[in-house]
Write a protein that binds this DNA or RNA. Structure first.
Length: 153
DNA sequence: GCCAACGTTGGC
DNA sequence: GCCAACGTTGGC
């Protein structure tokens, strides 16, 4: 079992939105970065991920989701109407993948980016590295447990 | 293969 | 809205 962190702008798609979806499940589409895509390809069904809200008043971790389906082609990449359209990807040769995530729970209170930055045990997370913009990133078991404890403080 | 220009991300 | 950092593109 591996752990991950996935970013979303809550104005576009939040943890609360996920909870309202049928079966509380949604495709994680729109990823157009190779490194993030490769992390999604490494995800296994049953892996857990933190749901991170970015570009908002209080950036941070707001919930937990479960990987419900492993990586498969992202059809929004070959839809010219889609904001994330990429003509390099075709149904014959898909370039971009997505996974399905299922709502697990919201955190009792958010673990904010400020809290994460203030914790020395988390200083190696790509999230807090200078200039890191990865929208999907791995979390070690140790970091996962540290972050879970911070939910209660 | 280099590198300038450009677009995007995302915190502040 | 600003801007730093990064990835991508495309001319040469």
């Amino acid at each position: 079992m591996n752990y991950w962190l996935m970013k979303s702008e809550p104005a576009a798609f939040s943890i609360a939105d996920l909870q309202t979806r049928p079966k509380k499940t949604e495709h994680w589409d729109g990823v157009r970065n190779y490194q993030a895509r490769n992390f999604m390809r490494a995800m296994k069904k049953g892996d857990l991920a933190f749901f991170y809200h970015s570009s908002c008043d209080v950036p941070g971790i707001y919930g937990i989701v479960e990987i419900n389906r492993e990586a498969y082609p992202d059809p929004t990449a070959w839809d010219p109407e889609n904001h994330h359209y990429d003509p390099k990807s075709t149904p014959e040769r898909p370039l971009w993948d997505m996974v399905d995530v299922r709502f697990q729970r919201e955190l009792k209170r958010p673990v904010t980016l400020a809290m994460i930055k203030a914790n020395a045990a988390l200083k190696h997370m790509p999230l807090v590295q200078r200039g890191s913009r990865l929208s999907v990133l791995p979390v070690t078991a140790s970091e996962w447990n540290t972050l879970l404890k911070m939910e209660n403080t």
